[in-house]
Design a protein around this nucleic acid. Structure first.
Lengths: 151, 151
DNA sequence: TACGTATGATTCGTGATACGAACTAGGAGG
DNA sequence: CCTCCTAGTTCGTATCACGAATCATACGTA
């Protein structure tokens, strides 16, 4: 119906069973599912896990998190509220601009953040386990190219 | 900290700014975001849109939908309830096995399903717009390889 | 300094999402 | 008939996501 049926261009790549777009949707679903599974193992939700993973490199202002997570300010407030209530993060007021609050991990949050971050990376890389290193590097480069310029 | 820092292996692929796993997470986020944007244009939620897209090829039993969407039975019941309330789908009892209900699109649901399906594919393919056809085909093949065997 | 405006974040109300446990209805085998 | 299994629903709870309204702070300008 559309232009989505891919044409086999190389001998090695056989006949693709779906086009790029459908593949992307499926892939996104798989990633989301992996996130959900790992989160459940640590008694977290996917959103909470993603928040923790955003913080492993240090405190981040609410506004930045809002942009990174594609969340409205009010949605982020709620998410941080719930995670703070569990004692995994804390808010620190910025001294330079007292309007902004930086979110940082507590000790337990740091532990959970590192664990879930590591597990996620392991599981996702394992998805590409049987792809040769060369192809995998190119896959990474192509993905980087797609997400570049999307925030 | 982990083995995620990619090593530049070819002259053409420059220095990647992140590894495969992080790229996958970002990509999943972008796809999710596209889904959300399109859904909003049609006054739907992402989940409702995904449900409609699942039905464009004909009626599907609840149990199958549950598996395809990675949803518990009760969650799916709620989702179908809300979409049915909007008049986009209807439930039909299966004559052979009167326990199963097949979900199918109404006329309006069909229209919305087709429209959102088309828009989603267009927008996602546009994401790879500046990638040469050769690379794009390989990207599709590699993605297919990753999601193969994940249900 | 005082005023108006812009920005960062929270509060509140609403609807959607997702889950598990308990339940109902229908099939399948003895 | 009785039991077991499966397909879906109901119900209660927690989370998620949004927009409008609000509060506090910063900043420019008169």
């Amino acid at each position: 119906m559309t232009h989505t049926e891919a044409v086999p261009t190389e001998a090695g790549t056989a006949e693709p069973e779906f086009g790029l777009a459908v593949g992307l949707v499926r892939l996104a679903g798989v990633v989301q599912h992996v996130f959900g599974e790992i989160s459940r193992e640590y008694d977290l939700t996917s959103q909470q896990t993603q928040l923790l993973c955003m913080l492993v490199n240090g405190p981040v202002p609410m506004a930045t998190l809002s942009r990174l997570l594609h969340l409205e300010k009010s949605s982020l407030t709620g998410l941080v509220d719930r995670v703070e209530r569990r004692g995994l993060v804390r808010r620190q007021r910025c001294a330079q601009d007292r309007r902004v609050w930086r979110v940082s991990l507590t000790d337990e949050g740091e532990r959970l953040g590192n664990d879930t971050h590591r597990d996620t990376i392991d599981r996702l890389e394992k998805l590409a386990g049987d792809i040769p290193a060369n192809d995998r590097d190119q896959l990474t480069a192509l993905i980087a190219r797609m997400v570049r310029g999307t925030g």
